[in-house]
Amino acid sequence: MPIPTDYSTPVRLSAKERTLSQLQKWIIDGTLQPGEKLNDSELAEALGVSRTPIREAFQLLEVQGLIQMFPGKETRVTTLAKEDILKLYAPLTALQALAAELAADNIQPEHIEQLRAINASFNEKVSEEQLYEAMEYDEEFHETILQIANNQHILTFCSSLQLHIRRYKYIFFKRPSWETHTAAADHEYIIQALEARNGEEASRLMKLNLNRPLEHLDKIL
């Protein structure tokens, strides 16, 4: 039989990848609470996998700072500490502000269209109160700007920092909807600055957007 060549290769996730993705989501959205003790046997049964991918996922989750393992004793979800969040946001904000400035020099009309499409999807998910999906679109928006900046070192460092602050960001998205919609407005202003190739303004607006959740830090934690 003839085999077509113009098709997308299906994405097949291993048991380890599926397990890691689900545990990340549960920790971020609060299904697994900060400080909660994790039982590998119970999680394996719930996810329909053996204990091996659970333990493999645990190792990666500990590297990401989402859990803490005490060999031979227990494994717990890490708590959210105000001091840690502040330490993470400072370098992330500086790097993403620099990326926005660099992106202004590289921006093309197709990039503007792409950013506006992502922001529209973000705003739609916020309106539908699909907050985890909204967070993913928010991250896609910022990662797209990182890609346009074309600096692999900035991209790598930001990706690492982003993993550590996802739980706090999700909590911010659960704030009153008008606050979350403000993030979509921030995105549009950033797009306008990039479209005008105004790197200084794009950088300033990026800092404003990323620092907005910190305004609520004392109220949330």
Rank of each mutant, 00 (worst) to 15 (best):
G199S: 03
E188Y: 14
A99K: 01
N209V: 03
E140H: 08
S41K: 15
T78P: 02
Q130P: 03
Q22F: 11
Q147L: 09
E143G: 07
N123D: 11
L92K: 13
S203C: 02
S127Q: 15
I154Q: 00
R12T: 14
T144S: 09
T79N: 11
I165C: 01
R116E: 12
Y168G: 00
M1D: 12
L61C: 01
K219L: 10
I3L: 11
K82R: 13
N123T: 14
L43D: 01
K87C: 02
T144Y: 07
V63E: 15
V11P: 06
A183G: 09
A149D: 03
Q192I: 08
I190G: 03
A44I: 02
L98P: 08
M1S: 13
Q192T: 08
A15F: 11
Q96T: 13
A57I: 03
N106F: 05
M206N: 04
L13I: 09
V63L: 07
R116L: 12
P10T: 07
R12W: 14
N150Y: 01
L131T: 06
T79D: 07
R18E: 12
Y137P: 02
T19N: 15
H142M: 08
T78Q: 08
A99V: 09
A185Y: 12
H181L: 13
K219W: 08
Q59N: 11
T182R: 14
L32W: 00
Q114K: 13
E133A: 13
F173G: 09
D84A: 12
E42Y: 10
Q33L: 14
G48H: 08
I220Y: 09
G30V: 00
P2W: 07
H111T: 05
R212I: 09
E83K: 10
I54E: 03
E62D: 01
T31A: 07
T79L: 04
S21P: 04
L60V: 15
L13G: 11
H181E: 12
A104I: 06
A81N: 15
G199K: 10
E188R: 13
L208G: 07
L66K: 02
L38D: 04
F141R: 00
L61V: 02
R51T: 15
F122N: 03
L205F: 08
P109A: 06
E128S: 13
A44H: 14
R116W: 06
A184M: 07
S160L: 15
Q162K: 11
R12S: 14
L214R: 01
P109F: 10
S177T: 14
E136S: 03
D84L: 06
P176H: 13
G199D: 05
E74W: 15
N119C: 11
L98S: 13
E133L: 15
Y168A: 02
M135E: 07
A134K: 01
L146P: 05
L131A: 05
D84G: 06
I28E: 03
S14P: 10
N209A: 13
Y89K: 10
S127P: 05
E129L: 10
F172I: 08
T180R: 06
